[in-house]
Design a binder for these strands. Structure first.
Lengths: 337, 337
DNA sequence: TTGTAAGCGTTATCAT
DNA sequence: ATGATAACGCTTACAA
């Protein structure tokens, strides 16, 4: 059980009595090999348990291997998991392998993963940037022809392909839905204001208010970047003198927190629309109305953009927006007070 | 913006007027380089944007690179995402990079990923096997000293390290909890009977019944491998002549489905214990009592087992069981009809 | 149809 | 402290 050297092409060649090049021909399916030689080579490969060394091959062939690096902020978040699934599915037919790493939402983690991936000479890079990261350093990479696509959030300090949800329009729709059901005091509970998605969704919120001629009241805006904070935020909002009658929760953690908070306060009659769907949304009481994103489609679009670049598409950087969808289930249709 | 050749050690060396070997020394922090030379090399590296090529390095150094391959059945399942997060966190200090690929719960997907990873000469392999896969072919790999660890489900046809939840004991605890609250007609809704986790949890269910002297009734056992099936199963169980007064849902999909089914039937007074926690378990009405797994700990244990092997641990294959935890929230304490 | 020589980017070994 | 040379496992280009 000690470390046995792995069989190489030369080992196989020696076994058969040919040259490594002949084995290489068999492995790569070149047709200039006699049927008999091919058979003997295949037998020897089987016997020795030969597995071609992709690293050596790629080094010789093009310095780039067939791996795509994906950096996400958090492996445990099903949103990113589903995005990754969409990417994988779209790349599989092409024989591309996905390497996923998690930045833990830190610029340092992202930087370190980037450099690991680059040292590994990935074919392309897919990045969901951490909140505070900067992407100037990737400019040089772009110069070498490495396709880079950003997902969910755009890069800072770099122009490149990007796939995002229709955050602003989606939020506008969700808030307009609440307005259509008679609400005028609508709270916004979102992520940290530095985050791209929070800013976009906030704009959508203001768009909807403006369209309806409802004055903006900054006291109705709260930050709740995790469940606890969101639950606390909703408690504050409802305790105020001129309280909100409806809440727009701008991400899934916020939505979960608001649901929790309302349940504890026994205030389930407060209207609520969440951004991003939740697995149990349907079973809640009331069932949760949401603006659903399409993480799978985001991944698919990013993979397609990337493969087009690999195929030589040299057009200028594109930004693809994936539409959202309002799913009406109950909580968003509750009337005011 | 066309394909620019990437700077190599020789390029840097030429720029400085030294040999590639000297640059290599600087890159690897060997101390036999004069301070002045080192400074000039570092400057040249910066200027040319040099990034060492890990593939070439690994090829020369040991044929193995510092990548660990992980195969999971489904990227979108947060259980596996969290497992992956636990692995990554445990490996990061050691500079190991995780490559994740999804088998889509098929033997073929698993086989193809395995061979990709092997061709890539990963340092080690982590596998959550697909339901119907076989692992004889990995025997040869084990022979070459490649550490292989299975997670969540044991291998078939191969003896190797393995990390699983305490499925049987956890299920026993959950069912005993229902019994302690007066139930004697307890339904079991689980995955497909071929799945290891289903079989183990089913054993735990029977253990609990046996301990309490409750006769086993096979009519109370249903298969619900997705939400819809589980919802249908619970409807059948409650419509029977001597209906169940409590349900043990042996995985998260089954639990979600049962919650859904009970809600639709307006039968939320039926007691329920789920296996595996759900994000919104606390907000359901009634809140969901579960036997929680610890996916992060599963990942961590697997990574540690693996790193011990990399450090030369040659002891025989171990199976690590990660304990589960009963979280009491309400649904499991409801009394019988 | 098969072989030879050279080289991908790096490092081990032995010199200097 | 630095360099020359060979080698890792494979493929390209050319030759036989």
């Amino acid at each position: 059980m000690s470390k046995v050297r792995r069989a190489t092409m030369s080992d196989v060649a020696r076994e058969v009595g040919v040259t490594a090049k002949t084995v290489s021909r068999v492995v790569n399916g070149e047709n200039s090999v006699s049927a008999e030689t091919r058979a003997r080579v295949l037998a020897a490969m089987e016997k020795l348990g030969f597995q071609p060394n992709l690293m050596a091959r790629n080094m010789r062939v093009g310095a780039r291997d067939s791996t795509v690096g994906l950096i996400i902020p958090d492996m445990g978040n099903p949103f990113f998991g589903t995005v990754a699934g969409g990417i994988e599915a779209a790349m599989r037919p092409r024989g591309l392998t996905l390497i996923v790493g998690s930045s833990e939402e830190t610029a340092e983690g992202e930087r370190s993963l980037t450099s690991t991936f680059l040292a590994r000479r990935v074919t392309a890079l897919l990045v969901v940037p951490a909140a505070d990261s900067d992407h100037h350093s990737l400019r040089a990479e772009r110069g070498t022809g490495l396709p880079i696509v950003f997902l969910d959030r755009p890069p800072s300090g770099l122009t490149t392909d990007c796939v995002v949800s229709a955050n602003r329009e989606g939020a506008r729709t969700g808030v307009a839905h609440l307005i259509a059901h008679g609400h005028r005091r609508i709270a916004f509970i979102g992520d940290l204001p530095t985050l791209y998605t929070r800013r976009e969704r906030f704009q959508g919120y203001r768009d909807a208010l403006a369209e309806a001629g409802i004055p903006f009241d900054r006291r109705l805006v709260e930050t709740g970047h995790d469940e606890k904070a969101a639950a606390a935020a909703v408690a504050r909002l409802l305790a105020a003198k001129d309280p909100a009658t409806a809440v727009f929760a701008a991400n899934n953690f916020a939505a979960t927190g608001v649901v929790l908070g309302l349940a504890r306060l026994r205030r389930q009659e407060v209207a609520l629309v969440g951004f991003d769907d939740l697995p149990l949304a349907e079973v809640l009481e009331p069932a949760l109305t949401v603006v659903a994103q399409d993480p799978e489609a985001i991944g698919k679009a990013a993979a397609e953009l990337l493969m087009a670049r690999l195929d030589g598409d040299r057009s200028r950087a594109r930004t693809v927006e994936i539409p959202t969808r309002l799913i009406v289930r109950g909580s968003g249709e509750l009337p005011p007070g």
